[in-house]
Design a protein around this nucleic acid. Structure first.
Length: 278
DNA sequence: CATAACGTTTCC
DNA sequence: GGAAACGTTATG
């Protein structure tokens, strides 16, 4: 093996370039091989790198130029599904926007976004204390939405107030609606059900991970190492894979390198982190 | 059941 | 303190 293999730095640049298109990264070789689809289901579900970048660039620049994404290139409104009623209409919209958020956040529903989502779904009452004692149980779920098409999450989230929720007296949301994890804050299963967003696999996986309390953390999927899709084959982890049980050092998620407690925070709309515990 | 990978312990 | 080894969990 000396032809196809690239070394750390090389692969790095290689991948950087592949970010633009990233299609033909042939990462098979599973089984005994090394290169394998890097991520767990959630990450698999959540599109390929190219799509990440496509989405994010589209989000930030408002323009897409991708071959892979051309399926919905000129169409901001992909789903050809008829929307009979107002409620379904809302659901459909949420559906779409959720996807966008998920793509941007690697499946994580930012707290504020989740809140906005619920609001838009007409579930604001759920956000109020005393609403209902929703438990954190379930395990399946949904996803989030943020209307990147110009609607209103930004209003709710990026509004004039940094963190409008809980001003003046605490945390106005029913805690049971949200699941706090080292990876972020998510909507609880029941909340998602109520919002009609329960069948999003990503959320479900997260939920299952969350339920178990302090289970293994998962790769963020967004950091450079996570984006890396091939093992270097040369680091100690690669060489000692049999005994080391470790992912290639160049692919080790940045988040996982940190102490779990360090990640136990919520990103506020402003980008500041909100700590649940100290 | 096999494989991948995170977390913890052990070793240097 | 960092690396390696091992235990364990997650996933297909």
């Amino acid at each position: 093996m000396s032809s196809g293999l690239t070394e750390g730095g090389q692969t790095e640049s290689l991948e950087r370039r592949s970010c633009k298109q990233d299609p033909p990264v042939v990462e098979r070789r599973n089984r005994s091989g090394i290169i394998s689809e890097p991520l767990s289901k959630s990450l698999k579900n959540s599109r390929t790198l190219s799509q990440y970048t496509a989405v994010s660039s589209a989000t930030t620049n408002g323009h897409t130029d991708n071959s892979e994404t051309k399926s919905h290139s000129a169409k901001p409104q992909p789903p050809p599904q008829p929307q009979p009623t107002v409620s379904t209409l809302t659901a459909a919209k949420l559906d779409r926007t959720l996807e966008q958020v998920l793509e941007g956040q690697n499946g994580l529903l930012h707290f504020a976004q989740a809140a906005a989502l619920l609001k838009r779904a007409g579930m604001e009452h759920m956000l109020l204390p005393g609403g209902m004692g929703v438990g954190v149980g379930g395990g399946d779920a949904g996803s989030g939405a943020s209307d990147l098409e110009g609607t209103s999450v930004t209003d709710a989230v990026g509004g004039p107030v940094d963190f409008p929720y809980g001003v003046g007296g605490g945390f106005p949301f029913n805690p049971g609606l949200f699941i706090m994890t080292p990876a972020g804050v998510f909507l609880a299963d029941s909340a998602l059900h109520m919002a009609g967003l329960a069948e999003y696999p990503v959320q479900s996986e997260l939920a299952s991970a969350i339920n178990s309390g302090k289970k293994k953390r998962k790769r963020c999927g967004l950091c450079p190492p996570c984006r890396r899709r091939i093992n270097c084959e040369q680091c100690s982890s690669c060489r000692n894979r049999k005994t080391g049980h470790q992912i290639c050092k160049f692919r080790k998620c940045e988040e996982l390198k940190k102490k779990p407690s360090a990640a136990l925070e919520v990103m506020l709309p402003t980008g500041a982190a909100f700590r649940w515990f100290q």
